Each structure stands twice: as structure tokens, then as C-alpha cells.
Computed example of a mutant assay.
Amino acid sequence: MTDKLAIFKGKEIRRTLHNNVWWFVIVDVVAALTDSVNPAGYIKDMRRRDKELAKGWGQIATPLAIETSGGKQKLNCANTEGIFRIIQSIPSPKAEPFKRWLAKVGYERVQEIEDPELATKRTRELYQAKGYSEAWIEKRMRGIAVRAELTEEWKNREVGESREYAILTAEISKAAFGVTPSEYKQLKGLDRENLRDHMGDLELIFSMLGEAATTEITKAHDAQGFDENRDAAHKGGKVAGDARQQLEETSGRKVVSNDNFLEQTEKQKRLGRE
């Protein structure tokens, strides 16, 4: 686990990375949102008031080792979902902006379920706000659609979610680029950021090719279960890998690099303003 601090409204919120997910010290969050001189007591009162919160407290709060002035100690922590649930039970005016934001996010999610095109539009707007070019966004959005089609195939072919999806994705990446996604992130100096949001044009294109080829091979061979789909993933990734190597040999330039596309874009913009 890696201990770090998050800053909120000038207050330090201790957090720790546990099972690759950020967990936040509950007493710190409550202290930041209530200014209570006794946040631990505030939490007890809050649980007494909110019976449903008290019922689910065992699923929300997890004791994790956190660095304190007296050394490492076990403190109750919650992941992002748990923290949001706790915020809902805080009557403090400081919590109201978060509650309004959560209501807005929930409303937007309902809208997106009713009209999936809204989700695509909002994703595009988010990338635009981050400074990505329209050409890059088009490739990224197409890649999202290709990925969705592949995971839908896996879902319908007796492949378990999460861990098995990650293994199959790593199989494609290893065959396409010679590195797994985690190795690729290390190469680019990324931590928890989305790898594909930091890929350049060719990296996105070969990612799409590997996943699109895997989808086609999976359908053509009617792959069922994890083992057959892993074989299809390797073959699909190899299609992209062979194409990548041919391009690299012809152009004399490597596709896989430690370049961070978003950082490069922001640097170019800064140079343009100088």
C-alpha cells in the first residue's frame, strides 16, 4: 500500500492505495466537511441518526494501516463510493455542494441510460476540455466503440468479468506491442491514469486493430470460455503486432514509446503561446 495525502478545502485527507483502489480516512473527510472538534464522535452520532448507514457500515468502513504521528495505525477508510454515501449523511452546509453534484451526476447517468448518445457526447466534450485535438478524439472514440464490442463478445462467451478481462487484454497488448498494459504504463511514467488517454495516433490505431481482429477471430472460431478466448486474443494481438513491426521496419521509427501524448500536446500549446 502507498500512503499519500489529498488536499481538500485546505484540509489534508489521508489516503492509501489498497488493491489498486484509493481508500480515504473517514475521520479526515468528516473533519474537512464539518469542522467538528471531535470528528470521531460526529461519526458515531451520524451512524445513530442514519440507521441505513449504520446497517451497511461494515461494508463501507475498512480498517487499513495509515501513517500517523505515532507510526502506522489501523484507521477506518472508505473507497470513493463509500465516501459518497457518508457525505449523503452529513447535514453540514459544506457537504451540500457535494450532494448537489452527486444528484447532478445521478441525473446525467439516468439520461445516458435513456439516450446512450449523450454519454458519447459528454466523453467527447471532456476530451476537448482537456486539450486533445479533434483528430485524436475521433480515434479515441472509435477505439472505445471497438473495445465495447469486444467485451460484449467476451461477456456472451462465458468469460468472467474484471480479472479475466484484464488477462485477455494483456494477451492482446503483449502480442501487439510486446508489453502488457501495466508495463506500458510504466514505460510512459503513468500511475493510475488511463493508458489510452496518453497514447499517440499510431498507438491508438494498433490498439484498435488488435481488439477488432480479436473480435473477428473470436466470432469466426466461435470461441467459448476463457482458454479459447485467450487463444483468440493472442492471435488478434499478433495481427496488430505483425502490422506494427512491418511499419517500424519500413519507416525506421518505433511505435511503442515513452512519449506521453497529452503532455506533449500541452507542451506544444505552451510553446505556441510564448
Rank of each mutant, 00 (worst) to 15 (best):
T2S: 14
K11G: 10
R14Y: 01
V21C: 07
V25E: 00
V25S: 01
I26E: 02
D28F: 07
V30C: 01
S36V: 03
N38C: 06
G41I: 04
I43S: 08
R48Q: 14
K51P: 00
E52D: 15
G58M: 05
A61F: 09
P63H: 01
I66S: 14
T68D: 00
Q73W: 01
C77K: 04
T80E: 14
I83F: 02
I87G: 12
I87P: 08
S89R: 08
P91R: 12
P91S: 13
P91T: 12
K94A: 13
A95R: 09
P97S: 05
K99H: 11
K99A: 09
R100E: 10
G106C: 02
Q111F: 07
T120W: 09
R122L: 03
Y127D: 00
Y132P: 15
A135M: 12
W136F: 02
E138G: 08
R140F: 11
R142E: 01
I144Q: 12
R147Q: 12
W154V: 13
R157H: 14
G160W: 04
E161F: 04
I167S: 07
S173E: 05
K174I: 12
A175V: 01
G178E: 03
G178R: 05
V179D: 06
Y184N: 07
Y184D: 06
R192M: 14
R192H: 14
N194M: 11
R196V: 00
G200K: 03
E216L: 09
H221A: 15
D222W: 09
E228Q: 13
D231L: 08
K235R: 15
V239S: 09
G241E: 01
A243R: 04
R244Y: 04
G252C: 04
V256L: 14
D259R: 05
E266N: 10
E266R: 10
R273P: 05
